[in-house]
Design a binder for these strands. Structure first.
Lengths: 343, 343
DNA sequence: TGTTAGCACTCTTATCTGTTGAGTGCTAAA
DNA sequence: TTTAGCACTCAACAGATAAGAGTGCTAACA
C-alpha cells in the first residue's frame, strides 16, 4: 500500500513527465509548492516507488520516468478531474451546432475535432452494420450499357456502384426488379439482405422478370460486396509532433500498422460501455508498444454501437483526453439520438 | 556545348546517384564498363561539368552530386528509354482489367498502383467540373422530417446530402419539384446548374408548388455547396522511406503542405498535354524545394481533363517514372473513353 | 595536345578522452 | 524520521586523433 506522500510524489512525477517529456529529478519535485519535504526524502520515496515498479530510471544516475504500471496506477487511482477550457467547450459545441444529418459527416467532423484538440491521432469506427436497414434501392441508367445502383439506408448513408447492363436484359426488367426489391426489402437490415433475397424474393422475381439470374447477379455484385466497417482517421500526422517519435523507424512501423484496417478494427472494438485505456504493452501489437490507446463507445439508435479511439504516446494527457472523449462520445450519441426519437 | 565524354560522365553520375543516394567519386565512375578512360581524366571532366553548374560537391573533397540544372539537363537530353518489367506491366493491366465504371474507383486504384510501383507519393486530380452533367436528381425520405437528396452525374458520380424537411413543406411538393427539376435539368453541366435554375426553372417551379422558396433553398443547400475538385492521394507514407527525408522537419513541412488542398490543386493543374517535370526550386513552394513533381494529364470524355502527379525527391528515377505515368495516363484515358464511345 | 600516374591536400566519419552537470545513493547528524 | 552533505554515476558535449575517400594539380608520357 502506498503512503499519502508516495502518492503525491508519484503524481508529481507523472504530471511533470507528461508535460516535459524529460526524466524528473528529486530536486525539481522538491521545488513544487505542494511538496514540503526535501529532495533527500523524495529520493528515499523514489527508491520505494521504483521497487514497486511504478517508476524507472533511464540510466543509473538519471531522474525518474513513469513505467507502464505507473501510468496504469495513475489512470486507475490518481486521475484528477479535468475541466475543459471554455475555448475547447465552445469549439466542440460549434462543431455539433450546425445541422448534420448524415452519419459520415458527423463522424468525420468528430474525428477532426478530437485530433485537433489533442494533437494525437483519432480513429472512429462506424457501427457494426447489423442494424442498418435498407431504406430504398434505386437504379439510374447512365448509358445504354451502364447504370448506377444506389442504396440508401435509414442512417442517411448512401452506397452506390456503377455496373454494366448485359445485352440480354431490358431496362424494363431491371425496373420491375427494383420495384419488387423495394417493395419486399424495405426496412430489412443490411446483413440479412443476402439471405432474405434468396429465401423470399428470389422466387417472386423469377416469375416476374426475364433473365432474372443474370440481372440479379449483376445487381448483387454492384451492391453487396460492400467494405466492412469503415474507418475514419483524423490527425494522422500529429504523431510526428510527439518527441517520442523522433525515431523514424517507429513512425514507419506505426503507419504501416494503421494501413491494416482490419487489424485496427479488431483492436478498437470496445464492448465495454465506458472509456477504456490501454497502455503500452497492453496493446498486443508490436508497433504500439510505446503508445496508449483510449477507446470510448457511442450509440447510434438502439443497439448499434461504434467506437471512437485516440492513439498517442504512453506519455499522454490522460485526464484531459479522457474528459474530451467523454464529452465527444455523448455529443455524438445525442446527435444520433435526435434522428430517431420521432421516427 | 558538351562533348560526348562529358555527356557520358554526367549520365553515369546521375544514374549512379539516383540509385545509391551517395556522392559519386571519379574512381567509381572509371570502374564502369562503358567508361574507358581513367579517373584523372574524369576528374578533369568533372571540373568542367561543375563549372557549367550541372554537378556539385557536398564539401570540398567529396564526390559529385547532380545539381538541379543537372537533373534538368538529364531529363531534357539524357533520358534513356525505359522498359517496364513484365511484372509491372502485368500489375497495371490487372488493375484495369476488372470492370470499373465509376470515376472514383478508377482514380483511386490508379493512385494506388502508381504509388506502389514507384514508392513515391501519387496525387490525382479529378477533372474540372465544367463538363460534368446532371443525369438525375432524387429525393429519398428518411423520416418524417428528414430526407436524402441524391444527384447522379453522367460520369457515374453520386453526390448526396441529407437535409431537414421544414414543417411547412409537404412531401408532395418536394416530389413535384424534383420531377420538374429532373425534366428541365437533365444533361445540364453542373457548373451551370445554379444559373439555369434561376433563369429557366424558377418561374415554373413557383407556379406549381407551394412554399417554393423554402423548399428550394433547402435543396440547394443540400446539393450545390459541393467541394471543388477532389484530390486522391496514394502512398503518403512512402516519403518516409526516402533517405532525403530522414530529417523529420522536412517531412513535417511537406505533410503540412499536402493538407492545403487548394494549394495542391493550383500546383498540379497541368495545362500542357504531355508530361511535365518540375525539379526542386522549379516548384515555387518552400516545402518542395527538395522534391520533384511529375504531372501528366488524362482525358475524360471530350473536353474534361484531369491531372495525375507524382511527388518524390529530386533524386528520382525519372526514366522509369515518366514511362509509368505515360502508361497509366493512357490506360485511364482509354478506360474513360470506353464509357462514352457509344453513349 | 590529350591522357594518365602520382602525390599533397581537404574534409568527413568514427573513435577516444576529458570535462561538465544533473541526479542518485548512502551516511551521519539533527 | 528527516535532512544535509558528499562521493559516485552517467549522458552529453567538445576537442583531438586517425583512417579513408576523394579532389586538384603537376609532370611525364603517347
Amino acid at each position: 500500500m502506498l503512503t499519502e506522500r508516495q502518492l503525491l510524489v508519484l503524481q508529481v512525477i507523472i504530471d511533470e513527465f507528461i508535460h516535459t517529456a524529460q526524466p524528473v529529478g528529486s530536486r525539481s519535485i522538491s521545488k513544487k509548492d505542494e511538496v514540503t519535504f526535501s529532495s533527500a526524502t523524495i529520493r528515499n520515496e523514489m527508491v520505494d516507488l521504483e521497487e514497486m515498479g511504478l517508476i524507472e530510471k533511464t540510466h543509473s544516475s538519471s531522474g525518474r520516468v513513469p513505467s507502464e504500471s505507473g501510468y496504469r496506477f495513475y489512470v486507475d487511482h490518481l486521475l484528477s478531474p479535468f475541466r475543459l477550457s471554455n475555448k475547447e467547450i465552445r469549439s466542440i459545441q460549434e462543431t455539433f451546432r450546425d445541422q448534420m444529418l448524415e452519419f459520415e459527416r458527423v463522424v468525420q467532423k468528430s474525428a477532426g475535432i478530437l485530433s485537433d484538440l489533442t494533437n494525437y491521432t483519432s480513429i472512429i469506427l462506424g457501427p457494426e452494420v447489423f442494424e442498418t436497414k435498407l431504406k430504398q434501392l434505386q437504379i439510374v441508367p447512365l448509358t445504354a450499357q451502364t447504370a448506377v445502383a444506389i442504396l440508401v439506408t435509414n442512417t442517411g448513408h448512401v452506397e452506390h456502384r456503377a455496373f454494366n447492363i448485359p445485352q440480354e436484359i431490358e431496362a424494363n426488367d431491371l425496373e420491375k426488379m427494383v420495384n419488387i426489391l423495394n417493395d419486399r426489402l424495405h426496412g430489412v437490415p443490411l446483413v440479412q439482405l443476402h439471405e432474405k433475397i434468396f429465401s423470399e424474393v428470389g422466387a417472386l422475381l423469377k416469375t416476374h422478370t426475364n433473365n432474372y439470374e443474370q440481372a440479379f447477379q449483376y445487381l448483387q455484385a454492384a451492391l453487396l460486396n460492400e467494405q466492412p466497417t469503415k474507418l475514419y482517421v483524423g490527425g494522422k500526422t500529429n504523431i510526428l509532433m510527439q518527441p517520442e517519435f523522433k525515431d523514424l523507424e517507429k513512425v514507419r512501423s506505426l503507419y504501416a500498422m494503421m494501413e491494416k484496417e482490419s487489424e485496427i478494427v479488431h483492436l478498437l472494438r470496445n464492448d465495454h460501455s465506458g472509456i477504456q485505456v490501454k497502455i503500452g504493452h497492453e496493446n498486443e501489437v508490436d508497433a504500439m508498444q510505446d503508445c496508449s490507446l483510449i477507446t470510448a463507445s457511442y450509440a447510434l439508435g438502439d443497439d448499434q454501437v461504434g467506437t471512437i479511439a485516440l492513439l498517442g504516446p504512453t506519455r499522454m494527457e490522460y485526464n484531459r483526453v479522457i474528459k474530451l472523449m467523454h464529452v465527444l462520445s455523448s455529443e455524438m450519441t445525442d446527435t444520433f439520438k435526435s434522428w430517431y426519437q420521432n421516427e
